[in-house]
């Protein structure tokens, strides 16, 4: 009797909980999947300013894509990818020692404070941090005057409105989002593994290359995903610091949508941007996996040579 009562109760508990995800699914389909699907759809249309949604879909084709590959757009594409790749590499190079220090070389009580000091600037307003760079980069600002007085530079700083300014600010803006995942990955490495490597006679460099770095791999991958992809679409930094010379893909898409009202072309550029990001990530993954494979092969030869001796 009781046994027959209990299971339906469980069932009653079970059914609504799967439905708990329902609102999110509806929300994401309505406001994420469907709108983006329409962007892909628009990218095959032509501009028609007379409509509320200024897209004419009567003769779909790839003409927007061929226009997006024309020289001006293509230069911006290349420049954006160059800025993003350089910035990602720089954030890894700058951020890894910090994450390593925080994970292995600092005492627990200082660790919390230092982590907070990394987190706080990363979560304060992105835009305000970018605008803040206008202060040191201003040609008639204090820093510029000091550097001229000390004779470090001949004329005023002329970085504002250039790609260098964008590059510096992008590294700055995303550094924290690289350090945090790197730290998390390094922190999860069991100290025992590194100790074992040292006990077995591996030097510091060797322990780092063969134990720490491979185990930090997921963290580096997460950091790259969290920084490289948003960098490619970032147009705030370019708009605030780059002026016309610092144009990036994001700014192009923005001007096609808001300025020129050419939605089909803007959509095509956006779709190409996503494709370019995926291709870059694929190249990165192939390089890493290929490198690991090569390394493993080399080491295997090493071992068989050394074994008899």
């Amino acid at each position: 009797m009781t046994a027959s009562v209990v299971p339906p109760k469980r069932g009653r508990l079970r059914a609504p909980k799967f439905l708990l995800a329902g609102p999110s699914i509806i929300w994401y389909v309505l406001f994420f999947v469907a709108p983006i699907a329409f962007i892909v759809y628009y990218s095959f249309g032509t501009k028609d300013s007379s409509k509320l949604v200024p897209v004419d879909m009567s003769s779909p084709g790839f003409h927007n894509y061929s226009e997006a590959f024309s020289s001006t757009f293509f230069t911006t594409f290349k420049a954006t990818l160059r800025v993003a790749v350089t910035a990602t590499l720089l954030t890894v190079v700058i951020g890894f020692p910090v994450a390593y220090f925080l994970a292995f070389k600092v005492q627990e009580r200082w660790r919390a404070i230092l982590l907070a000091l990394v987190i706080v600037p990363s979560f304060t307003s992105f835009l305000i941090r970018t605008v803040a760079w206008r202060i040191p980069l201003a040609p008639n600002g204090t820093l510029s005057k000091w550097l001229q007085d000390w004779g470090v530079i001949g004329g005023p700083i002329s970085l504002l409105e250039t790609r260098t300014a964008v590059q510096i600010a992008i590294v700055y803006n995303y550094l924290g989002f690289m350090i945090l995942p790197l730290y998390v990955a390094l922190d999860r490495i069991e100290p025992v593994l590194r100790e074992a490597s040292k006990d077995l006679g591996a030097g510091r460099v060797s322990t780092f290359m063969r134990v720490t770095l491979p185990l930090a791999g997921p963290g580096i991958a997460a950091g790259v995903l969290l920084t490289f992809i948003p960098m490619c679409g970032d147009y705030v930094t370019a708009t605030v610091l780059g002026g016309a010379k610092g144009n990036m893909i994001g700014a192009l898409i923005d001007s096609e949508f808001k300025g020129a009202q050419n939605w089909p072309l803007g959509s095509a550029i956006a779709v190409l941007m996503i494709l370019a990001v995926l291709v870059m990530l694929a190249i990165g993954a192939i390089v890493v996996v290929g490198g690991q494979w090569l390394l493993r092969r080399m080491r295997r030869v090493d071992l068989s040579d050394g074994a008899p001796a």
Binding site: F31, P35, F38, I39, L225, L226, I253
Partner: peptide, 16 residues
Amino acid sequence: ILVTPEIMDAIALAGW
């Protein structure tokens, strides 16, 4: 949703 460049979401929602 976490990794899509924000500009993509932004124009998609603006059009929608």
